[in-house]
């Protein structure tokens, strides 16, 4: 785990946390069958925040962010995203999903479609954008993640790092207001991690509201404004990165940090 994610200085001019609430989670509980996986989660995310969620494997980090776009259903409590409460109403769910982008550990690109088609699919079918316009937008974001020349290839022909950047571009094509990342770099070889982190840093510099589950503590230090530590389905500690790393309060956090940072 590198202690820094990038050597360059990060442009913080647009990284501003506003008072507007992007995500409001109150008293949220979730069970898988009889297994209580998330316990009494309370979390408020303001617009413009960059939150890193860390914690041991199996602590419920993925489940938490997957509840935010209803890939998993919660059984108690309330989740309000962009002013819309997540209920079983399919209309709300589809609306929230089109506003919230998500990147997965294994990219989940569509292997039967070209890179460009991957990026234009949702804008065309969900947003009803004309094809030509959707393709222009897609090329814009592919340039942003620095792989416009791969537009006509298939995902299987790209490296892992390139695929993850395509996945980010694909989410951005929906012009989301919130981005969720679930361990976006943990399936990648070390030399590819950097290119994906760079893309994420650029996104943060533009003021995107981000929730990242990641073990990249360098990224947490340099980019996050808040680090959340989860264990056993609960939020154990949250703080600004500086305080979180230098002065952890809970024993569990200390143990976790000593394991992951290796000192």
């Amino acid at each position: 785990m590198a202690d820094i994610a990038t050597d360059r200085t990060i442009d913080r001019s647009k990284m501003q946390v506003s008072d507007e609430v992007a995500i409001q989670i109150t008293g949220m509980n979730k069970w898988y069958g009889t297994f209580h996986v998330l316990k009494e989660i309370d979390l408020t995310v303001q617009r413009g925040e960059r939150i890193v969620i860390a914690g041991p494997s199996g602590s419920g980090k993925s489940t938490l962010i997957r509840c935010i776009n209803r890939l998993e259903e919660h059984q108690a409590g309330q989740i309000i995203v962009d002013g819309t409460e997540l209920t079983s109403d399919l209309k709300n769910i589809d609306k929230i999903r089109s506003e919230v982008g998500m990147c997965f550990q294994h990219f989940n690109l569509f292997p039967h479609l070209t890179i460009l088609e991957n990026c234009t699919l949702a804008p065309i079918w969900v947003r009803k954008t004309p094809k030509k316009e959707a393709e222009e937008t897609a090329m814009h974001f592919l340039e942003k993640v620095k792989i416009p020349e791969q537009a006509d290839k298939y995902p299987g022909q790209l490296s892992g790092g390139q695929q993850q950047r395509v996945a980010i571009a694909r989410s951005l094509c929906m012009k989301p207001r919130i981005m969720l990342f679930d361990e976006p770099t943990s399936a990648l070889d070390p030399e590819m991690i950097k290119e994906v982190l760079d893309t994420m840093i650029e996104l943060a510099e533009e003021g995107m509201t981000m929730l990242c589950v990641t073990h990249e503590m360098g990224f947490a230090r340099q980019v996050a404004n808040r680090v959340i530590f989860m264990d056993a389905g609960q939020i154990v500690e949250q703080n600004e990165p500086e305080e979180f790393f230098n002065n952890p309060k809970s024993e569990r956090t200390k143990l976790f940090l000593s394991q992951i940072l290796g000192h």
Binding site: L71, L90, H106, L121, A122
Partner: peptide, 15 residues
């Protein structure tokens, strides 16, 4: 098909 394909579609808001 891996479950990720369903999730990829769901997360983009496809019905």
């Amino acid at each position: 098909l891996p479950k990720g394909q369903y999730e990829g579609g769901d997360s983009l808001g496809l019905n």
